[in-house]
Write a protein that binds this DNA or RNA. Structure first.
Length: 458
RNA sequence: GUGGUCGUAGCUCAGUGGGUUAGAGCGCCAGAUUGUGGCUCUGGAGGUCGCCGGUUCGAGUCCGGUCUUCCACCCCA
């Protein structure tokens, strides 16, 4: 038999004890904050019907969906003509009806509609689960990663946006990461598109604008040209871009004059100024910026959009979100608006690792290991272990009667602070010899004294 | 999907213009020390040099293909 090489799919990772403990720290911090603001936790299945997922993330997003092959004879419904057509895209939809979730927002919208009669609105839920994207992995990008989402659905109020900004700030404060919160509003972007005469090209225009910071004005203009936007229109847009620097000051007055003839644009500015006014009531640690080039690719956003980046590490956004006015409409529930944010656990992990923000402790091993001197002695130790564990002390017995040297080395390697030695002498005298692994000193205890000693020596 | 990059022991990596038996550090196992870990010393195990093919008397080394890793673009947490 030939042995197979172990390995995991590209873009996925194993998490050892140390990594798991650290990730848990992130999850616990985030969920504690979410709960502090009244959000309740739900979970949804890893897989959804492709109908639910498709068409919600744009054309690119659809390509990045993992599809699950139907069970049984999945080719039976296809005729030879279709099979030989070579159109893998349409064939894939015939042989796969389920897919892995791409984010937590769309499954949540589905959940809300499906359970609308059990839900009390406004519904504030959070969700911490992995999502999958068939992307090509690179720095800060994985094919399987965990998102931590908080959403409010069933309320138009901008106080929800405010609350999410408050939450974001608190999460990163707890984790010790300095961040920049960037804000914009999809309605303002729609105003741009209308202003330059291309209201229907919103997506093209916003994705080009999104590259402003990274690629520069010239590249943005080039891309828009390639997409067939007229030069005069591009120049108009450029004028808006020059406002970027002063708009960071959070006084979108000039913008208001510029967009005075576009209704949605004005509405967006109105929303943004109100939100910024509310934010003035908060004492945020993060820096808050109005960034009119912030676009966000996801199709379903209609109002506020928010993106959070690390002030110290370049790794893309750590957290992003926005308002979606009609995500539930596709599933048959009209006029329900929602707003939410999503924290990317993987990137937060990577940033914290790079900035050395994790505590040094090695995670949860036993406080004491009992040496195994042989079957008779080991059986005696079982009773002692019961008493320690009843007192809440993590304790274990080395399973094999190995050489003492090996058992001590094992305790050492696992960072167990104490080793209990119970051989023939100890059993006769009803005592336990306890070795302190950091000092190398040994003391003799009765079981009751030992219990007390271990409780008080953390 | 496009472009580049990497692959040698469990891990991190050396390996000359192709040349006999492919190395180091760390880790692992054993002994020095039969109930005492970390430090030290001694010895040992462990490799189809990613895979397939080609050039050559001879390939870890050169060429082609393929897979994998990482990075950039697109897009995104």
């Amino acid at each position: 038999m030939s042995t197979q090489k172990p390995g995991i799919p590209k873009g996925t990772r194993d998490f050892g004890p140390v990594e798991t403990a650290r990730r848990n720290l992130i999850f616990i911090s985030i969920s504690n904050v979410f709960e502090k603001y009244g959000y309740v936790r739900i979970e949804t299945p890893s897989m959804e019907y492709l109908d639910t997922l498709l068409g919600k993330y744009g054309e690119e997003g659809d390509k990045l969906l993992y599809k699950i092959l139907n069970s049984g004879d999945f080719l039976s419904g296809l005729d030879q003509k279709e099979l030989s057509s070579g159109d893998s895209n349409s064939i894939s939809l015939r042989i796969a009806e389920k897919g892995l979730r791409y984010d937590l927002t769309v499954p949540f919208a589905r959940y809300v509609v499906q359970h609308q009669h059990e839900i009390v609105f406004p519904f504030k839920r959070y969700q911490i689960q992995p999502v999958w994207r068939a992307d090509r992995p690179q720095k800060g990008r994985y094919r399987e990663f965990c998102q931590c989402d908080a959403d409010v659905i069933g309320s138009d109020s901008l106080f929800n946006e405010l609350e999410l900004i408050r939450i974001t700030d608190e999460v990163f404060e707890r984790l010790g990461i300095k961040v920049k919160i960037k804000l914009n509003n999809r309605k303002i972007l729609a105003g741009f598109a209308e202003y330059i005469g291309y209201p229907e090209r919103l997506t093209d225009i916003t994705t080009a604008l999104d590259k402003f910071e990274k690629a520069g004005v010239e590249n943005v203009k080039l891309e828009l040209q390639e997409k067939g936007i007229k030069n005069e229109a591009i120049q108009e847009l450029e004028r808006i871009l020059f406002l970027q620097e002063e708009e960071k000051l959070m006084k979108p007055d000039r913008l208001k004059t510029l967009l005075r003839d576009t209704r949605t644009g004005l509405l967006g500015i109105e929303e943004l100024t109100t939100l910024l006014e509310y934010c003035g009531q908060l004492r945020l640690r993060a820096s808050l910026e109005f960034d009119l080039t912030l676009a966000r690719g996801l199709n379903y956003y209609t109002g506020a959009i928010i993106e959070v980046t690390s002030a110290d590490v370049e790794i893309g956004s750590l957290c992003a979100g926005g308002r979606y006015d009609d995500l539930t409409g596709i599933f048959g529930l009209k006029n329900v608006s929602g707003v939410g944010i999503s924290f990317g656990a993987e990137r937060i992990y990577d940033v914290m690792l790079q900035l050395n923000l994790f505590p040094k402790e090695i995670p949860g091993s036993s406080k004491v290991i009992f040496v195994n001197f042989g079957e008779k002695e080991a059986i005696h130790c079982i009773g002692l272990l019961e008493k320690l564990r009843d007192a809440g002390i993590a304790a274990e017995l080395y399973p094999d009667p190995a050489k003492l040297k090996k058992q001590l080395a094992y305790a050492d390697a696992r960072n167990v602070p104490f080793v209990a030695l119970v051989g023939g002498d100890e059993i006769r005298q009803s005592v336990i010899t306890l070795r302190n692994m950091s000092t190398g000193t040994q003391e003799v205890f009765t079981i009751d004294k030992l219990k007390e000693y271990l409780i008080h020596n953390a």
